[in-house]
Design a protein around this nucleic acid. Structure first.
Lengths: 255, 255
DNA sequence: CGTCATGTTGAGCGTCATCAACAGGAGTGG
DNA sequence: CCACTCCTGTTGATGACGCTCAACATGACG
């Protein structure tokens, strides 16, 4: 267990320190907190709607989503989370889960009991600000998703998601840039993309085809490569302000 | 000024105390914080996308929304806020506003400088939890809106909004129940409703017509009266868990 | 060599957007 | 008082976007 829990905890700390100033003591306190670490297969519900969790989870590896069940086994994804994220901090305040937290890929997940977290927060009050900030960014992303689903049509919607995920992953060092090409891992099936964008999988398929034809982005199972970042951002009307992250740097010289 | 700032501050405190345990000293500290109070006409941008605010606003009276501008002067509303809300607490963390905060009705709004708030948070660390919790609920509502826009069609979407707003207002004592009838103020035009639900105003009009015909809800300019709460909630597939609020009580005996 | 998940394409149709016209009320100014 | 404008609500006609159903292809895996 210790071999599992040392490196992953660092992923979590790395994410927090990337965005906030952690005091040395707070940082030390956090290091020891992630006890239980588990490995899940894709499409596994880590926490279920209706649960009353007594611990928070931390994504150490893989992609995870929040989603709500609809009629007839369908579901709508409301948020995406990558390594380093703490998708259910809100369970400290919400006794009953209003949504599922489900793995989209294989994922390694750590757990921190609410009790430990409360203790820590009492001991290190500044941590509340750090966690609060996480929730603030989360909320900002959700609002942008509202705008995305409410006002953009299919291709723009998907393009916007690519821009957002690329920015978020880049900020965590999980995007590779070679010349003008920006590549990110894309472990989602078209059906999963449909659940995220609120489209049917057939229409996702056609929209992807159109996006490929536009030459702005290359989409395969496993990878997304953005060929024309400026073009894609303009097409999706993507403004990264809401992410509170470093902006993807554009090459100044482009043909 | 003092005559303006005493009662309204209470609205703010009332909202916080309704949801969280405020320590006596924290409460006292908050009382004195709202200095500047202003009255705005409907459809006025209190804070604009791109601004770098140095203060937070508190809604003391009226309805306010967060919205983002789209092409051609259109906009998408991403959140609604009523009296007692603090819609831009996040500006403590986000240097640049990623959205507008705009009045939907006439509104009275108070302001607290960031500096005072930071001071207060340093003095009363437990307040961070209180504010954090506000953000948590905000985020939960945004996620439900994502689900609403992504997966429900027009009539359900509007019905869901009615259920949500009724629940939120009820929790603030701003809904009246007479027998089986639940009535709330509804100061929004159909165009505003369209900007909230991501529909065209024509389609909103037709959807409202259909909802009226269903007899579940009565909609006029100014008021919404829910005749069949259970029916409306079922139709909209409304589950109030995400609001962290008391549930609207159903009459056990209904015909 | 099946089965299963995923991706792809076609056909038909429903929801919703757009454009347009008109009605009613509020406010303004003559 | 009326004429005028503006905002809001209402309705019709038309078409686009996206859904559903269906068929089939492909690759992974047993």
């Amino acid at each position: 267990m210790s071999s599992l829990s040392t490196q992953p905890t660092n992923a979590f700390i790395a994410r927090l320190t990337a965005t906030a100033d952690l005091s040395g003591s707070a940082r030390q306190a956090l290091e020891g907190l992630v006890g239980n670490v588990r490995l899940y297969a894709a499409n596994y519900d880590i926490v279920r709607q209706g649960d009353r969790p007594s611990q928070c989870c931390i994504i150490l590896e893989g992609w995870v989503c929040r989603n709500k069940l609809l009629a007839e086994g369908r579901r709508q994804v409301a948020a995406l989370h990558f390594a380093g994220a703490t998708p259910d901090l809100q369970s400290l305040f919400m006794p009953v889960m209003d949504h599922n937290i489900t793995t989209l890929t294989e994922a390694r997940v750590g757990f921190i009991p609410h009790a430990s977290l409360r203790e820590l927060l009492a001991r290190e009050p500044s941590l509340a600000l750090t966690f609060w900030r996480e929730t603030v960014v989360d909320a900002a992303i959700s609002r942008e998703w509202v705008v995305n689903l409410g006002s953009r049509q299919a291709q723009e919607r998907i393009a916007h998601l690519f821009c957002e995920v690329a920015t978020r992953l880049k900020c965590m060092g999980q995007a590779t840039r070679i010349g003008n090409l920006l590549t990110i891992a894309w472990p989602l099936s078209q059906s999963q993309l449909a659940e995220i964008t609120g489209l049917s999988n057939v229409h996702v398929n056609r929209s992807l085809k159109a996006l490929r034809a536009s030459k702005m982005v290359e989409i395969t199972r496993g990878w997304v490569t953005i060929h024309d970042l400026a073009g894609l951002m303009a097409f999706a009307r993507f403004n990264p302000d809401y992410l509170l992250a470093e902006t993807l740097h554009l090459e100044t010289a482009r043909n």
